[in-house]
Design a protein around this nucleic acid. Structure first.
Lengths: 215, 215
DNA sequence: GTCTATACTACGATAGAC
DNA sequence: GTCTATCGTAGTATAGAC
């Protein structure tokens, strides 16, 4: 018996909705929320501009949903590490590795995140439920790394660093790095996302931060 | 967050041109190039929108000039440290302190810089002479820190870190930090730019990075 | 679910009076 | 040096045919 391709769940043909999110993710990550018009998104998907509004209520809501998708993915990859039963030093190494892997796997993520952190709260203060949820997911991620650092300090394996400053340093060293686009490519002399560059990034980060934070 | 005006208003009244640059710096740093319209800039200065075009040829040129102003200031504060006759370890500490001081003194700087680094080259590829000059100044700054790191590695006082990755970590730990706005304020529980937060940032950074990079 | 057509607003930029 | 008026374009979003 033949199955229609479009309805076969094994051949996951992307829905229009997903295609829109993918295209929007690329564009927003590169040029920011205000820098991208819905016309460009629609063109990238191969739809008319008006058709986007069948899938999303507004540009804001599309963006918030995008951000939520990125943050949930990050949380899902980082959460098991925080709750694992491991020594804090080992946990920290794995957490950094997992974060780097997650950011490297989907190159648009880091840029979207940096923009969100640098932009003054346009979206977290929105009444959009999607934006509220995204903010909560971000809080979860932050709570995780804070707890991890607190454990290490309490057990005396990390020196008494300032937890907020250390979180900032971590974000800068990972999220900023993978968000730095052409500038970062130029500095490294290769793509930030090449297998070698990702591997080197992990090694450098872990060496520096482990040495710098161990008691 | 107020920009320092001229020292003596009776003698040194700021020109419209300077007022425009100051207002634009605040706005662009907070919401990005595409996120700010010239109408808002003009309102902030107290002029009509058209009057801006008497002082600047286009929005692009206004932005490029802004960026150049920020970068030249940074370069001027960092250059003497790189060329000073000091041991590399001491130089690095002073360089970090000077960078933190420079970013903390003018809160809009870090955000403008992060945006520029994260944005895919809209301005460096321009034909605007102002943009070309800004790119050169950025290169000067980067050349300085690269040289400083290379010296330290050569003399065996720093371990053999990857220079590009180390530069990225430094940028992330300083520029990103001071660009993180409301998010950073919330994380620290106080303004990123308060005297205490700036002092703590320096201490944490120097302790971590010095430990992490020393041979 | 996608289309055309359209409403309304804002944008960057120019012309020309004062 | 600033103003008003205007141009042409593009922005988000809606209405309604198919």
């Amino acid at each position: 018996m033949e199955q229609a391709l479009a309805t076969n769940p094994l051949v996951d043909l992307p829905s229009s909705r997903e295609k829109i999110l993918d295209v929007a993710e690329q564009l927003f990550s590169r040029r920011g929320y205000a820098g991208v018009g819905l016309r460009e998104v629609a063109d990238g998907v191969g739809l008319g501009k008006s058709s986007l509004f069948h899938h999303f209520r507004s540009k804001d809501q599309l963006y918030a949903e995008l951000l939520g998708r990125v943050l949930r993915r990050l949380r899902n990859q980082l959460r098991p590490i925080v709750t694992a039963e491991l020594a804090p030093a080992e946990k920290l190494v794995r957490w950094i590795e997992a974060l780097v892997d997650a950011l490297a796997e989907q190159p648009a993520s880091a840029r979207l995140l940096v923009r969100e952190l640098v932009e003054d709260g346009q979206f977290q203060s929105e009444e959009l439920p999607e934006a509220v949820e995204a903010t909560q997911v971000l809080s979860e991620i932050l709570g995780g790394i804070r707890q991890l650092l607190a454990e290490g300090i309490e057990q005396g394996v990390f020196r008494q660093v300032s937890i907020p400053h250390t979180v900032q340093t971590l974000i800068g060293a990972t999220v900023y790095h993978f968000a730095s686009g052409e500038f970062g490519d130029g500095l490294l002399g290769r793509s930030l996302f090449s297998a070698e560059a990702v591997k080197t990034r992990k090694q450098e980060l872990i060496a520096t931060l482990q040495q710098g934070w161990m008691a």
